[in-house]
């Protein structure tokens, strides 16, 4: 097994062992922190597909994260207030599977529209266009008073999943971890698949794709849609963790944080977002206790990583990525 493979297994084992220990020791808050890390990791895995494999520097992924959050919030709000979603027709729901499917559909559709428009540009223009879309959603959410406007929406009780009591922190953690593990497995398979090979080449040499009869833009669009859907799903889980959704989920700072944690862990590496999210949440927690200005230290770390470890923390530990075989 490669060094990176071993490192990935260690990370995975840690994500099982640490929360379990915290649960047994009664450290509920640590379980909640781990849940936060796992959900942000999932959002990062989504972004990493666009950013790492496709080379699409999206500063608008908060749009999908927020859409996931609001899809959950709106469905649950109608369920808890017993008002129909669409007059006389659709009710709201407190069922996670239904919420997740809705979320995936909504964020994939949004990613399709945003991708179609922004993939006409490249480089810094792509960054700006995706940022602009993110901000559009942000301001829309602020002005949408039916669903809390600036104040956001509170959900009284966490949504349910068949067979689980999601109110127990460790059970909700297990559910989020299972989703992350499944998405990582799919991600691993896609990287080695024909689509993964073509996407990887579309980032490196689009002219070559054209020359062998393939359309690099369409390949990147599909990657962007899948990427948005994954980040959207993470948004729904994030909202369920906090039992609260607000326009902050749409903010450009959130897009930036997602990008920071992917870069921290290692752009384009399978476990890059996972390692990045764990470090990010740990720093956020510990440094916040040390100083109100903890972002300074995070910035310093990011600077060091970017300057001296281009493969992020994973690159630092496991060296350069081997070609998949």
């Amino acid at each position: 097994m490669s060094r990176e493979g071993a490192l990935n297994l260690v990370v995975l084992a840690g994500l099982v062992a640490l929360p379990l220990w915290a649960h047994l020791a009664g450290e509920t808050f640590t379980v909640t922190l781990a849940t936060r890390a796992v959900i942000l990791a999932l959002a990062g895995v989504g972004l990493n597909l666009a950013l790492g494999a496709g080379g699409l520097v999206s500063l608008g992924h908060a749009a999908f994260f927020g859409l996931g959050g609001y899809a959950m919030g709106i469905l649950a709000f109608h369920a808890q207030s017993m008002t129909p979603l669409v007059d006389g027709l659709l009710p709201g729901t407190k069922s996670m599977p239904v919420i997740w499917l809705t979320t995936i559909a909504v964020s994939a559709l949004a990613a399709l529209v945003i991708g179609l428009l922004s993939l006409r540009t490249a480089g810094v223009y792509f960054i700006m266009v995706t940022l602009a879309f993110g901000q559009m959603f942000f301001y829309f959410a602020i002005s949408w008073n039916a669903y809390g406007g600036e104040d956001g929406l509170s959900i009284w009780v966490r949504n349910g999943f068949p067979g689980l009591n999601t109110l127990v922190p460790i059970q909700f953690y297990g559910l989020c971890f299972a989703v992350l593990a499944l998405v990582l497995l799919l991600s691993h398979l896609v990287r080695r698949s024909p689509f993964g090979l073509v996407l990887n080449a579309a980032r490196q040499v689009p002219a070559r794709l054209e020359a062998v009869g393939l359309d690099p833009t369409r390949v990147k669009l599909v990657a962007f849609v899948v990427s948005g859907a994954i980040t959207g799903l993470a948004g729904a889980l994030f909202a369920d963790l906090n039992r609260f959704v607000s326009p902050a989920m749409f903010s450009w700072q959130l897009s930036g944080e997602l990008m920071v944690l992917v870069i921290l862990g290692g752009v384009g590496r399978l476990f890059g977002p996972v390692v990045g999210a764990v470090i990010f949440v740990a720093l956020e927690h510990w440094l916040d206790g040390v100083s109100d200005y903890w972002h300074v230290y995070l910035g310093l770390l990011l600077l060091l990583i970017v300057l001296f470890a281009r493969g992020g923390v994973i690159g630092l530990v496991a060296g350069r990525e081997r070609a998949h075989d």
């Binding site: 799919l186 398979l189 896609v190 080695r192 698949s193 024909p194 689509f195 993964g196 090979l197 073509v198 794709l209 062998v212 009869g213 393939l214 390949v219 599909v222 998949h324 075989d325």
Partner: peptide, 15 residues
């Protein structure tokens, strides 16, 4: 893959 015209396969290993 270009010649086969079937790049839309996501889960099987290309190699």
């Amino acid at each position: 893959l270009g010649a086969s015209g079937r790049p839309w396969r996501f889960l099987r290993s290309a190699l």
